[in-house]
Amino acid sequence: MAINQSTAAAVTGVRGPQDVPVTLDVNGSTHAIELEPRVSLLDALREHLDLTGTKKGCDQGTCGACTVWMDGRRVLSCLTLAMSCEGHQIATIEGIAQDGRLHPMQQAFIDHDAFQCGYCTPGQIMSAIALIREGNATTDADIAEHMSGNICRCQAYPNIHAAIREVRDADDGG
């Protein structure tokens, strides 16, 4: 199959490089904003939607602080362009507590002192909840391996593991 020049010329819908309207579905709300195409999902959340709970630790995909869910799966928002998220459901730490009540994982993090400085914590929690949903929290080794994309420089790891085990073992499963 060859693609001729007339097909190439027919490509329409190239957007940018200046600000263009973008619609993002975040935590169940629709947000219509204007962004340059080069804006990451992380920066769209933090700088354009004032959702600063999602943290920027490296902006290079090496720390996990920016973990959010896209269509229920955990991804790194620093390496995702906001425009690629149109039509997808994004969930951030701000959407985890319901009706003012902490999610069991949030409460377990507090009870087990699973953080110190707190900067990696939103990403840890987004991964931890997803981990159980994925079925990757069965054994201690599973938890350790599948949480390894979230670095905690304060080294609260043992306490994070304890929090995850508690939620996993609770009746409602978190």
């Binding site: 490509v11 819908g13 190239v14 957007r15 940018g16 490089p17 200046q18 340059e36 195409p37 425009m83």
Partner: peptide, 13 residues
């Protein structure tokens, strides 16, 4: 990152 344009392709072609 320099400014970029963005196109979301709907088909392989």
């Amino acid at each position: 990152m320099r400014p970029v344009t963005f196109f979301r392709a709907g088909s392989i072609d």
